[in-house]
Structures are given as structure tokens and as C-alpha cells.
Computed example of a mutant assay.
Amino acid sequence: MEIEDVSRATSYTTLAAGSDFRHELEIRRSRFITVLRRSPDEDTARSLASNLRREFHDARHHCSAFVIGADRMIQRSNDDGEPSGTAGIPMLEALIKRETSPGVTDLSDISVVVVRYFGGILLGAGGLVRAYSESVSAALDLVPLVQRQRLRLCAVDVPHAEAGRLENELRNAGYVMAETGYEPQHTILRIALADDATVVSEARARLASLTAGSLELRPQGTEWVDVPL
């Protein structure tokens, strides 16, 4: 199924799919608990702060920021009671200025909340900016990331008994596999390719070689696919 996408970007970096990622720092007796979540839309991003307010109900602040979309057009932040500009904006800048490779700042579809337990020592405006920025940056140093690419999907119908072997051979050949489908008579393997006629032609030739010409690729449009870094 072809998925329409009006963005100009064809790739960006995001958090690997899975559970929320947590990291904690103590700065001058205050606890800063950073939680990162992969967030493809604003509802998912905002729900992170809501959930953490319930979990850490006795914390003084639950500051947040998120950036969403392949072109990173949606960017929001919230100081949640900290002095204006000392929490949410530094957190957002830590996301949007993060280099995912030398000279590349393309992190998106990610939300972050920093829960602060006040330790009794005032940090001042500059200290708060550094603390919130450092909390997010330290978490990003450890978090698993993937590249999300808009790729051309092609499918091949494979007898169930042969699907596992063929999938392994395609992976070993360097192809990125998308979601597998299952029908009563066959398994549907999907290959994610660069949206380039030459690349697609080469994939057809490789499949023909692996299956003695018995199977063929059919186009299925484009889709965003996670590619390991």
C-alpha cells in the first residue's frame, strides 16, 4: 500500500522503537530524571508528560520538549514552572541541535521530559539552562537510534516452506526487510529499496538468481522504514 508523504525529507534519525528510555543525573542535590520516547505525533508526545506527572506526582517540575516530522516542522517546549526559557527551550535545542553524524542535525519524532526533584540549592537561570540541556544530552549519548528512510517497497510471494531461507539470504545480501505478511497459500516478503530504478532492477536480478527465476518482485509504493545505524 502506498503511503502519501508530502515532506521533502527522505531520511531522518529517531529513537529506536521500543520502551521509553530513562537516565538520571544529580546536579547540586537536585535529581533530573530524563525520559525519552519515540513520538510520531503530538498526542504520543504529550502523553509522555501526562504519564510522568502521575508516576512522579511528588516532583516539582515535569519539563518537556518534542520535535516531530521528517522536516521537523512541529517543535514544542514547556518550562512547567521553571523560570521562562530555562528548561523547555534548552531541552528542545538539545534535540534539534544534536548531531547524529558529523555535521548532520536531523533528530525527529522524539519527545523528552525531564522530571526535577528540587534538592534545596538554587541553580540560577544559567545553572538551570545547563542542567536541563546536559540532562537531555547525556540521555541522548546512551539512547539507541535508527535512521528512518523513505524507501521503495517491493513484495514477493513465497511458499511458506521457503520464506525463512529466502528472507535470510536477502538479509545476508544487504537488503532491508520490511513487514512480512501471511496469506493462506504463501508468505509475503517485503524488501525496502532506495527509490531508484537501477536499485530496483538489481534487486529483481538478485531475486531471480536466488530463486532460479521462479519468483518476481512487484512494486508496492513507498513507506518510511527503520534502518539500523
Rank of each mutant, 00 (worst) to 15 (best):
I33Y: 03
D43P: 01
R190N: 11
S214Y: 01
E179L: 11
L229F: 15
S11Y: 13
E134D: 15
T14Q: 03
V227F: 09
T105M: 10
G181N: 07
G221M: 14
A163C: 05
D157R: 15
S64A: 12
A49D: 01
R150W: 04
S108H: 06
M73W: 05
M73A: 09
Q220E: 15
N51R: 11
E24Q: 14
R190G: 07
H186V: 12
R204H: 14
A163R: 07
A138R: 14
D157I: 08
P219C: 08
E202W: 04
D157N: 11
G181D: 11
V67F: 06
R29Y: 12
T13Y: 12
D58I: 06
G103K: 03
P40V: 14
E24N: 10
A9E: 08
R130K: 14
E93F: 09
C63M: 03
L217Q: 05
D157H: 10
R150C: 06
N51K: 07
G164L: 06
G119A: 10
S201V: 13
L140Q: 03
S64W: 02
R76G: 01
I110S: 01
T14F: 13
R204P: 00
T86Y: 02
I191R: 04
R76S: 04
E167I: 11
L170G: 04
G120S: 09
V146E: 01
E223G: 06
D71S: 05
R53I: 10
S11Q: 15
L153C: 04
T13L: 03
V112P: 02
L15V: 14
A203G: 07
P144H: 12
I96S: 06
R130F: 12
T13I: 14
P219L: 10
R130S: 09
A155Y: 05
R72F: 05
R54Q: 09
Q220F: 05
D157Q: 13
M91A: 03
I89P: 02
E42C: 07
Q75P: 03
L215Q: 01
V104L: 10
D109H: 13
S84G: 10
D20W: 02
S135V: 11
L128R: 00
G81E: 03
S47Q: 11
A138C: 10
T44V: 12
L193S: 06
V200Y: 09
P219D: 13
R98G: 00
T34F: 05
V158F: 00
L170T: 09
I191V: 15
G127I: 12
Y117P: 06
R148W: 03
V176F: 04
A212W: 00
A173I: 08
G181Q: 09
A178F: 04
R53E: 07
A131G: 07
V176I: 15
G124N: 07
I68W: 01
P184S: 04
K97V: 04
E179D: 14
A173K: 08
T222P: 04
E4A: 15
D79S: 05
A70I: 06
A125H: 04
T86K: 01
P144V: 13
G164R: 10
I27D: 09
D196E: 15
